[in-house]
Amino acid sequence: MAKIRFKLNNKMIEIDENPNLRLLDVLRDKFGFTGVKEGCGEGECGACAILINNDVVNSCIVPLGNVNGKEIMTIEGFSLSEKFDVISSSFAEEGAVQCGICTPGMIIASESLLNKNPKPTDEEIRIGLSGNLCRCTGYNAIVKAVTKASKKGDGLW
């Protein structure tokens, strides 16, 4: 066990836990943030993507011990923001949501990308989302949605 402090969806948290725990399990089971999905458990599919200090990471391969002192944002926390509204409405308008299991992760990865690069090119979007697998959409609607969000949210990022 170890004391671990971090900010979770804008709230300070201190827990005494096994630092080996997967952050994914902590977020889902201890805090009920089930918008963080498990797709592969090995950091490849991106369904469990969250933001740590504004950067996208896959929470299934982040040990709890690595988030000490960090700021964590799950889709639940991010969904309260204006940026989320811009991204999610763009996803809706472009038909980028099908089964939805990859969608929270896709939105998180989009946010991480737009944070660094508010006006990404088509190719930069594809690279930015390359760690998020989607089996339904063939990605093009998602790429269009991120382009649209970047335009609609001009100035937000």
């Binding site: 096994n18 997967r22 399990d25 950091g43 299934c60 391969i61």
Partner: peptide, 22 residues
């Protein structure tokens, strides 16, 4: 020693919802 965990957490992966096996 655990750095970013991107390899180690995959190699030691256990059943979902249980800690990796170290």
């Amino acid at each position: 020693i655990m750095a970013g965990g991107t390899d180690l957490m995959v190699q030691r992966r256990a059943w979902s919802q249980t800690p990796p096996e170290f």
